[in-house]
Every structure is written in C-alpha cells, then in structure tokens.
C-alpha cells in the first residue's frame, strides 16, 4: 500500500512536470480574466502544485515528516 502511494506520488509529479511545458498556449495572446491565457495557466499551475503537495504531505504519502521519529532521534 505504501509503495503504491509512493509510486502514485511520483507519477503525479511527472505529470505535473510535463504539464509545465504548455506548448499549446505558446502563441495564444487571448486575455482571460484580464490575464494572457499563457500566464493564467501558470498561475493556476502553481495552485495545483500546492494542492498536490498538500495531499502528499497531509494525506499520508510515505515521504513526509513523521514527528514521532524525530523524537526517537533526539
């Protein structure tokens, strides 16, 4: 289960990396909500990254901190 979650997280991060390269908006100068669509896409992208990382950190992906181990080390 833990390894499935881990690989799931890696997969989502790879998708996010690929999604950063938005060739489809390269020459699109349309204004959406007052912003060029190519810029708006990347603002939304930042928010999506935050949501994914929040899920990873707070909803039990294997990598985030485990406080009880910190105390074990002390």
């Amino acid at each position: 289960m833990a390894s499935r979650r881990r690989y799931g997280l890696y997969g989502v991060l790879v998708v996010l990396f690929l999604a950063h390269n938005d060739l489809w908006y390269w020459r699109d100068a349309r204004l959406v909500l007052g912003l060029p669509v190519g810029l708006l896409y990347h603002v939304v992208y930042c928010l999506v990254v935050a949501v994914v990382l929040a899920a990873a950190v707070y909803l039990g992906a294997p990598e985030p901190a485990t406080p009880h181990r910190d105390h074990d080390d002390a």
Partner: peptide, 9 residues
C-alpha cells in the same frame, strides 16, 4: 521534520 510541511505546501 514535520516543520517542513507548511513550507512544502
């Protein structure tokens, strides 16, 4: 290590 969570998000 838990302190990092907020920074990550």
């Amino acid at each position: 290590a838990e302190t990092f969570r907020l920074s990550v998000v």
